[in-house]
Simulated assay, not measured.
Amino acid sequence: MTDADLAAHLAHVAGRILLEVRESGMFEGKALGKAGDQTANEFLVHALRQQRPEDGLLSEESKDTDERLDKSRVWIIDPVDGTREYGEARSDWAVHVALAIDGVASVGAVALPGQDGGTVLRSDKVGDLRAHDGPPRLVVSRTRPAAEAVAVAERLGGELLPMGSAGAKAMAVVQGEAEIYLHSGGQYEWDSCAPAAVASAYGLHCSRIDGSPLVYNQKDTYMPDLLICKKEWAEAVFDALNA
């Protein structure tokens, strides 16, 4: 099984597991989010340890160690990206499975189990980006829209689209529902590695908001900001940020 096939398969199966946990009716509220996180993480970690034992591993839901820092290949996973949305039975949550090679988000799969049919977007099977005429649409946090994103939208005459998880926002650009995803409120490597791998494969611009590259498998996993957008909007976004 190729790395891309493995990433897509694990993301899909983890998504199914999460739906079953939710539909069991045994948990609700924060307990549901915790049960989903733990169950999906256990599956993903065990599967990756068995299928790719020599690779490093970083998961939001597992204790981090320095062992991965010496590895060229490191799997970076987020078992439930958007725990709140998952618990509320919304569609804007995701499962992230990515492989960073020498710090680059090289292989990725983002499962959107809440969408009809359980969509899985992957870095090795890409389609054409949908065209959009008119002002850009920017996906932003449902609860804390980034000030920079709001400012960019105002300067570009854009529309703000509140949405849940980071993966759902990034995939909204891939799926043609938006043109720009700008985040400046702080994330971690597992929030963006799989989405960046998929978005890059689709030909989207992916970087920090100062234009520098996204670098993964760092000792400090905090990533302050990122920009994922259609390439034709990148220069306008940077100009608006610097205005």
Rank of each mutant, 00 (worst) to 15 (best):
L156A: 11
G157W: 06
G158V: 14
G158A: 14
G158H: 14
G158L: 03
E159M: 10
E159D: 10
G164V: 06
S165L: 01
S165Y: 06
S165P: 14
S165C: 06
S165W: 02
G167W: 07
K169A: 11
K169D: 00
A170K: 08
M171E: 13
A172E: 02
A172G: 04
A172C: 10
V174Y: 01
V174I: 02
V174D: 03
Q175Y: 02
G176K: 02
G176R: 07
A178T: 04
A178K: 11
E179Q: 14
I180R: 02
Y181K: 00
Y181N: 11
Y181M: 10
Y181C: 10
Y181S: 08
Y181E: 01
Y181A: 13
H183D: 00
G185W: 09
G185M: 04
G186S: 04
G186P: 03
Q187L: 00
Q187D: 06
W190H: 06
D191K: 03
S192F: 01
S192C: 04
A194D: 09
A194I: 00
P195V: 00
V198F: 04
A199Y: 09
A199R: 03
A199K: 04
A199H: 06
A201W: 11
Y202E: 01
Y202R: 09
Y202C: 07
Y202D: 00
Y202L: 10
G203R: 02
L204C: 13
H205S: 12
C206H: 09
